[in-house]
Structure formats: structure tokens, C-alpha cells
Simulated assay, not measured.
Amino acid sequence: MENKKPITFIFWVIAIILGVTLYKQFDFQNLKFEKPALAVVYIIVFVFSVFVLIKNFKKKRSGK
């Protein structure tokens, strides 16, 4: 169980950095990203990191 703490921390850092980056790159007036191809990669990695965090949280709550 102790080995999962550094992995969780890494995914938190990734999610925060990518969330801020996506927010900064989004143009709210035109509703578009500055670099759409790079934004797709950011969104995929962001969603994956949030998925891993939620999965880990649920597993911790259930006691397994």
C-alpha cells in the first residue's frame, strides 16, 4: 500500500499542470484552442490521470 503514494502524487501533479495549461491555451472568445493537436494530447493525458486518481480513491474507500 505504501508504494501507491508516490504514484498518486505524480498523477496529481500531472492533472494540475495539464489542467492549468489547457485553461491557458483555450481562447474563450472564439471557443478554440491555440494549438488544437497539442490540446488533444493534453486532454487525453489529463483524463487518464483523473481516471487513475478516481480509481485509486474508490479503491481506498472500499478498503481493498
Rank of each mutant, 00 (worst) to 15 (best):
F51E: 00
K5I: 15
I44A: 15
V13M: 08
Q25M: 07
T8S: 08
V47D: 04
F48S: 11
I7P: 00
I54C: 11
V13I: 13
K60T: 06
V52S: 02
N3T: 12
L31D: 02
F26D: 00
V20N: 03
F46K: 01
N3L: 10
Y23P: 01
K59L: 13
P36W: 03
T8L: 12
D27C: 08
I7C: 04
V47A: 15
K4V: 11
L53Y: 00
T8P: 02
F51C: 07
L22N: 04
M1H: 06
S62G: 03
K5C: 12
K4L: 13
A39S: 15
V45T: 12
V41E: 06
K64P: 01
A15C: 04
K32M: 05
E2D: 11
V41Q: 10
F51V: 10
F48M: 12
K64R: 11
F33I: 04
P36V: 09
D27N: 15
F11Q: 04
L31W: 09
K32W: 00
T8N: 09
P36R: 09
K58E: 15
F57R: 08
K58A: 15
K58Q: 15
K55S: 15
K59M: 12
F9R: 07
S49T: 04
I43A: 14
F11G: 01
K32C: 03
V52K: 01
T21E: 06
V52W: 00
K24L: 04
I7S: 09
L38P: 01
F51I: 07
E34A: 12
V41Y: 08
I17R: 00
I7Y: 07
L22M: 14
L31Q: 11
M1E: 10
P36I: 05
A15T: 03
L18A: 03
N56G: 08
A37T: 11
E2I: 10
V47Y: 05
R61D: 13
V13R: 03
I17P: 05
K4Q: 09
V52Q: 02
K55G: 11
I54E: 07
G19W: 01
L31P: 00
M1K: 05
K5F: 15
K60P: 00
F28Q: 06
P6G: 08
N3C: 07
K59Q: 13
